[in-house]
Amino acid sequence: MPFPDYQFIQHSCNMLIQDELAYDRYALLNEHESFHSTLTNEQNIAYQTIINAIDKDDSGLFFLYGYGGNGKTFIWKTLVVAVRSRGDIVINVASSEIAALLLTGGRTAHSRVAIPINVVEDSFCSIKPDSELDALLNLAKLII
């Protein structure tokens, strides 16, 4: 008899991962189609660049910048529904609670990735190897 896949068992018992996979993929797919069809040319270039990096499993760091009202949050929301509709994990973090509210499933960076509140020169995130948070971060396709 074959041995069970322990990685699958660990992921299925990890509530952080289960929470990030609990979205209705079909509703997200419909939302994605609606969002994607209204992207401007500039927004679509940024969207395609990031989606292509995700598809190729390339690591990357992308900056979206512009004045308020340029559609940065809309691009993020479109990316989130695109990736989640595939059954992949997206971690939405922001520097403040108000900003985190703009993104579905958003949390402050301090609470999600264990950034200390009072940062000093030798501060570091206290994510333990082989913890549930470590597994979540390793499975994430996109961190905003």
Rank of each mutant, 00 (worst) to 15 (best):
T73R: 01
V113L: 02
T40W: 00
I45L: 13
N92C: 08
L21D: 09
M1K: 07
V120T: 06
I17S: 00
V81L: 05
N92Y: 03
E33C: 13
F3S: 09
T108V: 02
D58K: 09
L103H: 01
D24P: 00
K56H: 07
F35N: 14
L139K: 11
L139G: 11
L102S: 00
H32W: 15
N138L: 13
N70R: 06
I115K: 00
Q48C: 15
I144P: 10
A27M: 13
G66H: 05
M15Y: 06
I89Q: 00
Y47H: 11
L133A: 07
S96T: 12
L28V: 06
N14I: 14
I51C: 15
P2I: 13
T108C: 02
I17C: 03
C13P: 04
K56M: 15
A140K: 01
A114C: 08
N14R: 05
V119A: 01
I143T: 02
F74P: 06
S34G: 13
L103Q: 02
S131T: 02
F3A: 11
S85C: 05
W76F: 14
N92I: 02
L133G: 01
L136Y: 05
S123Q: 04
A135M: 10
L102C: 00
T104E: 10
S37P: 12
Y67I: 14
R25V: 10
K72E: 10
I127C: 03
I98V: 10
E121F: 07
V93A: 06
I51G: 14
S131H: 01
T38H: 12
S131P: 03
F3Q: 08
Y65N: 14
Y47T: 03
S126D: 15
D19K: 13
Q18T: 09
H11W: 08
S59I: 13
D58L: 11
A46N: 09
D55P: 13
L137V: 06
L29C: 15
G71H: 00
F35E: 05
E31T: 09
C13R: 08
R86G: 08
S85N: 06
V93W: 01
D55A: 11
Q18P: 06
P129N: 04
D24K: 00
S126H: 12
A135V: 10
N52R: 10
Y65M: 11
A100W: 03
Q7F: 11
T49H: 13
F63Q: 04
Q10R: 09
G105L: 02
S111H: 02
R84V: 07
R86L: 11
G71Q: 02
G106P: 05
P2D: 14
I17Q: 00
P129A: 09
I143N: 03
S123P: 09
F62Q: 08
L142Q: 02
A114N: 09
K141A: 08
S123W: 00
K141Y: 01
I91Q: 00
K77H: 05
N70M: 10
V81P: 05
Y65H: 14
V120R: 03
S96M: 02
N14C: 12
T40P: 01
K72D: 06
G105P: 06
A109V: 06
M15F: 06
Y6N: 08
L28D: 13
L39C: 01
D24L: 00
K56F: 09
I89W: 00
L103A: 07
A99E: 01
G105C: 07
S123I: 10
N138D: 10
E20Y: 03
F8V: 15
N70Q: 07
E132T: 12
F74K: 02
E20T: 04
P116G: 03
A46D: 08
H11A: 12
N138I: 11
